[in-house]
C-alpha cells in the first residue's frame, strides 16, 4: 500500500514519474532504434528529462519567479539556481544534437545509409579487408568466414576533403 501511496497519493511525486518515463522513452529510443537520426532524437528526449528534473527540483509550490520586485518583501519564489543551470544544459543539449546531426549528414554522405546495422556490416567488411592484408598468427589458416553481406549501395565519396 505504501508504494501505491508513494506513487499516487503523495502529491507532487507524479512529476518524477513523468521524468522517469520520459527518460526511459529516450533511452529506449537510443537503444532500440537503428536509424541514427532517431537515436539522436531519443538522446534529445533523454536530455530533456534531465533538464525537467532540475526544473522540478527548483520549483517551490506557490512560488513565483525569482525576480526582485519593488516593495515586496518575503515573496515566496522558486529556487532560481537549477533553472539557471539548465540554461547551460540546454545549450549543451543543442550543441550535442547539432553535432550529432552533422555527423549523421557526414555518415549519410560517406555510406549512403543511416541504418546502424547496415553501417555495422559495412564497417566489419572494411575491418576485414584491412585484416586480410595482415593475417593474424592466431587465426587458423584456410578457415574463411563465410558470412554473406547484403549488398548496400555505397554512396557519397570516401570521405571528401574539406568540410
Amino acid at each position: 500500500m505504501s508504494l501505491l501511496e508513494a506513487l499516487l497519493v503523495q502529491r507532487g511525486l507524479w512529476v518524477y514519474w513523468a521524468i522517469i518515463t520520459l527518460m526511459m522513452i529516450g533511452l529506449y529510443g537510443v537503444i532500440a532504434r537503428d536509424h541514427l537520426v532517431k537515436k539522436v532524437m531519443g538522446l534529445n528526449v533523454f536530455q530533456s528529462s534531465a533538464i525537467l528534473l532540475y526544473v522540478a527540483i527548483g520549483k517551490v509550490r506557490g512560488g513565483t519567479a525569482a525576480i526582485l520586485l519593488e516593495g515586496e518583501e518575503n515573496v515566496l519564489y522558486s529556487n532560481p539556481l537549477p533553472h539557471v543551470l539548465m540554461l547551460t544544459a540546454i545549450v549543451v543539449g543543442i550543441a550535442t544534437t547539432a553535432l550529432a546531426l552533422a555527423l549523421t549528414v557526414r555518415i549519410q554522405e560517406a555510406y549512403g545509409t543511416l541504418e546502424e546495422d547496415e553501417l555495422a556490416r559495412l564497417r566489419v567488411r572494411e575491418d576485414e579487408e584491412e585484416a586480410a592484408l595482415d593475417p593474424h598468427p592466431f587465426d587458423p589458416p584456410g578457415e574463411p568466414e563465410d558470412v554473406e553481406y547484403p549488398e548496400v549501395k555505397v554512396g557519397g565519396g570516401a570521405g571528401g576533403a574539406g568540410v
Binding site: L27, V30, I31, A32, R33, D34, K39, E116, D117, A120, R123, V124, D127, E128, A131, E145
Partner: peptide, 15 residues
C-alpha cells in the same frame, strides 16, 4: 575482431 566482445558493439547495445 568479429567476436562478441572484440567487435565494436552497436551504439544501442552499449547504451
Amino acid at each position: 575482431p568479429a567476436g562478441r566482445l572484440g567487435e565494436p558493439w552497436p551504439t544501442g547495445t552499449t547504451v
